[in-house]
Design a protein around this nucleic acid. Structure first.
Lengths: 342, 342
DNA sequence: TAAAAAAATGCAAGCGCTTGCATGGATGAT
DNA sequence: ATCATCCATGCAAGCGCTTGCATTTTTTTA
């Protein structure tokens, strides 16, 4: 080993020495700077390859004041929606030369705040995130706003912070799903909604209500339940509804997972799906098509939203403009066997 | 605006000037260095807070030659197994002060190679990865080995590169699942296996075969199919088996998704589950419990494996030792309704 | 063939933080 | 009061790369 065994990292200085030129020339050559002759570029690249040189992104980031890193803050990776979103995010990031550093809040606002701090420390070039269900104060994003670091939000967004917003038309989702049941002949439709404090769920509820209104169907107060959409909430709702003298003949579940649980709970009660009851959920999981009967759903395009979010984000990073563009993505109605024509 | 509007970033120099002390003292104070008096520490921290100072991790990383970043390379985020693994990875990484940069190979070796290059450029402190199904040459990990940067592998691992290996006992999984069917009274058990080139699937197959042998059951050649486990593969297998004069009365699916598809295809043929046929899959997805009948499975602990991988990795990072420890995680047999006592 | 223009390269500072070593001041022992 | 000890802080170099400007080399033009 050499006396100064420097952890073995090859630097541009090593290349420079090898060729008897200056480090600046090496740097420029490797970056294909126009003012460097083809001859030296080739020589430099050849030596770099021979020596096994690999750019030190840390040093590069520091001097360029640009990390080429995009931070991602999402609630959790447990749901397919977010996993797909992350997948989309990572793919377009990679295609654009960005790395992705990721973190989950687990729906904790405190974690969210903490993570913005970390992302700031990491000096990410941009942030894409989906707020927790409880986030109402978004001051923790001010650091980025102040520094003109773009923040793209998707699904659960806040218009209080500038930047791209990628949302699905949740009102439309609720409306379309409900109307689907109505068209099937359902007269007594119930809705297990999410917390109203969340825009997403509020809009879905609105869509639900308006669809009923539009078709002159009554909205029974007991038929509109708001909850955290946990497994227990779904079971409770089913118990409540199915013990009613007048059971619902259609259910709109505000989320994919609650829909699954509702369907399973209902079946456990011996109720025939979809003959006695139609179900549709707002949000689709792959297993919706494997259950019996397969579960109709309005699909939320997680993958596409993730892709769109970074695409917009990168646009902001490049064009300097941290403008607030609103993209509404279409939703897709997946009709399966859990909803039934009467 | 000040004449030199420096992007607004507060540095330790700003704090130093403010307090008329040297930047070194500020640095040490913020890092709770023992040689700094409590008095100055407090002053420094107070000013830091007031100014909204946030450590520049890039600069810190460069000078410390440590990034506190862990790189993750996984096949894809589509399967719950990997999503959960990533979730576990990120959580323990965060708890230990590490950031996670993530990338998917989509089962492409070329992508895998490319990603190791990126991770190297990013100077990650450690790598955790799950190889693609096709990876046989692992030379692209040599860079890390040479630099003593630990590489932890989970699930699909290669013993050719040193470092922690977190695997599930796949032989056991195959054996246990098969034995379960045997105990239920199945006599003609088929197995849709994965590609044999993959250790994981080879071991599962071995477990399957040995269980049969142990219980003196014949292995019909047509009952052992090897494939890529795509949806089509699963459907083809079902078609083949169900057209046989002597159908199988039990099926062991090598993966969660293929099990789901097999079950669904079989049901579509009007075959009664589990009366006429029992199914169990090696790998569990949440939806296994929602399908009818719910699908028995051997659970592969993705979340735990992810956690274990980083835990081991961090140990390596700290203790300098990049030793090769082999951890076998237990598997869990989830008995549900798709397997039936005859 | 000299002067001017263009092309290629080098110099050196700087990105923000860390850290070994030197220094100054306060405390304690004699 | 004196010198050895600590304790607290400062100095300055360095991490590896980028980049504005200066300098050198080559090419072009008259």
């Amino acid at each position: 080993m050499s006396p100064k065994e420097k952890k073995g990292e090859i630097t541009i200085n090593d290349i420079a020495k090898e060729l008897n030129i200056s480090p600046s020339t090496v740097s420029r050559a490797l970056n294909d700077n126009a003012k460097i002759s083809e001859a030296t570029k080739n020589k430099v690249k050849a030596v770099a390859r021979d020596l096994g040189y690999e750019l030190n992104l840390v040093a590069s980031s520091l001097s360029k004041n640009k990390t080429n890193v995009i931070g991602v803050i999402i609630p959790h990776l447990g749901s397919q929606f977010f996993a797909k979103a992350l997948s989309g995010i990572q793919e377009v990031a990679r295609d654009n030369g960005y790395n992705v550093i990721i973190s989950q809040t687990n729906e904790s606002v405190q974690q969210e705040v903490e993570m913005t701090r970390v992302m700031n420390s990491a000096r990410v070039d941009g942030l894409v995130c989906c707020l927790t269900m409880e986030t109402d104060n978004v001051d923790h994003f001010n650091v980025f706003v102040k520094k003109s670091i773009p923040v793209a939000m998707f699904d659960r967004v806040s218009y209080a912070v500038p930047g791209p917003k990628i949302v699905v038309d949740n009102y439309e989702a609720g409306y379309v799903a409900t109307e689907h049941l109505i068209n099937l002949g359902c007269k007594r439709i119930a809705h297990l909604a999410g917390v109203v404090s969340s825009k997403v769920f509020e809009e879905r509820s609105e869509g639900f209500k308006d669809a009923l209104k539009k078709h002159s169907l009554p909205l029974l107060s007991q038929f509109l339940l708001s909850s955290d959409l946990t497994e227990q909430d779904a079971r409770d709702a089913v118990r409540l509804w199915m013990n009613l003298p007048q059971r619902p003949d259609g259910i709109v579940a505000a989320s994919a997972s609650s829909g699954l649980i509702i369907a399973s709970a209902v079946k456990a009660l011996g109720i025939k799906l979809p003959e006695e009851l139609s179900i549709i959920s707002l949000g689709n999981e792959r297993c919706n098509e494997f259950v019996t009967p397969s579960l109709s759903a309005v699909d939320m395009p997680g993958y596409e939203m993730g892709k769109a979010a970074v695409t917009q984000l990168i646009k902001c990073i490049n064009d300097g403009v941290s403008d607030s563009s609103i993209t509404l993505k279409p939703i897709q109605l997946l009709i399966r066997n859990s909803s039934f024509k009467h």
